[in-house]
Design a protein around this nucleic acid. Structure first.
Length: 419
RNA sequence: GGGGGAGUGCCCGAGUGGCCAAUGGGAGCGGGCUGUAAACCCGUCGGCUUAGCCUACGUAGGUUCAAAUCCUGCCUCCCCCA
């Protein structure tokens, strides 16, 4: 593919390319020399649970691969023990080697689902390979290329410094180590989130000192979570985990708002296509056009999106099931389809009195559908309860041995009573 | 060490003797609208087979016919001074 088209694809959805013309130059040069670019993505196996936000740079990396370039995924097994201070107001706790190892495994498992594993296009390196054996002399040599002032201008360090919060000396070394990774593999391009900008630029700096051609830093925006507002993060409870159950993952993607505040009517949908799925610019533009013209219903656009995302991580079969499940849950409202997706549960005690009736709030509480019988009572009084598909407004009701309970739109259970 | 202030329901936060299960907002829940959503509207929002009862305003006591509200001890947190 020619250079211009490559650049269009690769720069789509990115936050910043530093230096601005750098990517173009790199690609032209690669073409001339007939060798692929070495594209680095460093990940620290610090968190055991990955979410769609983590997948954004991986998707971009995949695009590079698809254009014939070589991805080098660096597992920061060594750096993880230090902890990236980026965006942090306090020192990160150190991880044990076992934790790091376990996290690295889940990370590579997920990464393989996105990346092309052709050995010509993918290399996985662990940075302990070169960092663990660095001796003090070499370390001093490395650090002599950086200045304290240079490190201190970083926002997160500066804030902490001013606030007289401690900054561990080892944290100062973090960008040095990451930069050294770039030297070690001779990276042409390094990807990362916008919060990684400083670290990526440190790589450029160090490469220059070693008389290598400095890498291009390509930062990617942080993906918003299901609330459509804050960046995706487990602590905001707006994340979509890569290891979620298919139905849950599908539903979560469906629940993203259409629009990110002030960015166009379907900006969230297109953003997810672009960043979470890594769709090419042409596809994204076409989807957007169809949404605008009304040819494509936003619900259907999200359904396709969800399907593809689930399919990536859990397979087509799971995606198909999740979609069917979702449609049964929300689209169709008849009893039969509800029966198919409802969980079954058996109560240990029979709540029925000798005359065959039972106090429903108790039944709901026993089944775990409400947290107290008062809540159950309220739900019934407010018309939120269906028994076997029929709206039930009575608290005291005659029950069979097996029946379907639905509360609101989401909670459904088939209850079996001991006979 | 000295001085001052604060602790209220899931969260924030009103309430300073009876009308307080406690204003208001947020979250949650049910209903409506819809696209499954967002926004919006209505309702609900301690527990209990609920015209009532029980438990609750940091904690333990006390005053009172009556306490989230007054008094005392204790615990916790914040601020100022040293």
């Amino acid at each position: 593919m020619n250079a211009k088209d490559q650049i269009d694809i690769l720069s789509a959805g990115v936050a910043e390319i530093l230096p601005a013309e750098g990517l173009k130059k790199k690609i032209l040069k690669a073409e001339k020399r007939k060798r692929p670019l070495i594209v680095k993505l460093g990940v620290d196996p610090t968190a055991p649970d990955l979410h769609l936000g983590h997948a954004v740079p991986l998707r971009k990396l995949r695009q590079f691969q698809d254009l014939g370039h070589k991805a080098v995924l660096i597992i920061g097994d060594f750096t993880a023990r230090v902890g990236d201070p980026s965006g942090r107001s306090v020192t990160r706790p150190a991880l044990t080697t076992d934790q790091v190892k376990a996290n690295a495994k889940t990370y590579t498992d997920q990464a393989f689902k996105i990346l092309d594993d052709d050995p010509d296009k993918l290399e996985i390196r662990y940075n302990s390979t070169w960092l663990a054996s660095l001796d003090f002399a070499r370390l001093l040599e490395l650090t002599s290329r950086f200045t304290v002032a240079g490190l201190l201008v970083r926002d997160d360090f500066m804030k902490r410094y001013k606030a007289e919060q401690m900054i561990g000396l080892h944290e100062f070394l973090y960008p040095v180590m990451q930069a050294y990774d770039s030297v070690e593999i001779n990276a042409d391009v390094e990807l990362g989130g916008t919060d990684q900008k400083f670290n990526l630029l440190a790589g450029r700096q160090l490469q220059e000192k070693y008389e290598l051609e400095p890498q291009v830093a390509l930062t990617l925006p942080l993906l918003e979570g299901t609330d459509g507002a804050k960046k995706m993060s487990k602590s905001y409870d707006n994340h979509i985990g890569l290891t979620f159950e298919a139905a849950d993952m599908f539903g979560k993607v469906m629940s993203i708002p259409d629009e990110a505040a002030g960015q166009g009517r379907f900006s969230m949908i297109t953003k997810y296509y672009q960043l979470a799925l890594g769709s090419l610019p042409d596809e994204v533009a076409s989807i957007e056009a169809k949404l605008e013209s009304g040819e494509l219903h936003p619900r259907d656009a999200k359904s396709q999106l969800s399907w593809q995302i689930v399919s990536t991580y859990l397979g087509e079969k799971a995606a198909e099931d999740a979609k069917a499940d979702f449609e049964a849950r929300f689209k169709v409202k008849d009893k039969d389809s509800a029966l198919q997706i409802a969980d079954k549960m058996k109560l240990s005690k029979d709540p029925r009195k000798p005359d065959g009736t039972a106090y429903l709030p108790h039944v709901l509480k026993e089944a775990g559908l409400v947290s107290s019988s008062s809540e159950g009572r309220r739900v019934i009084e407010q018309g939120g309860l269906r028994v076997d598909g029929e709206l039930e407004g009575n608290l005291e009701v005659r029950l069979g041995d097996e029946f379907l309970i639905e509360i609101g739109k989401r909670k459904k259970k088939i209850i079996t009573l001991p006979s």
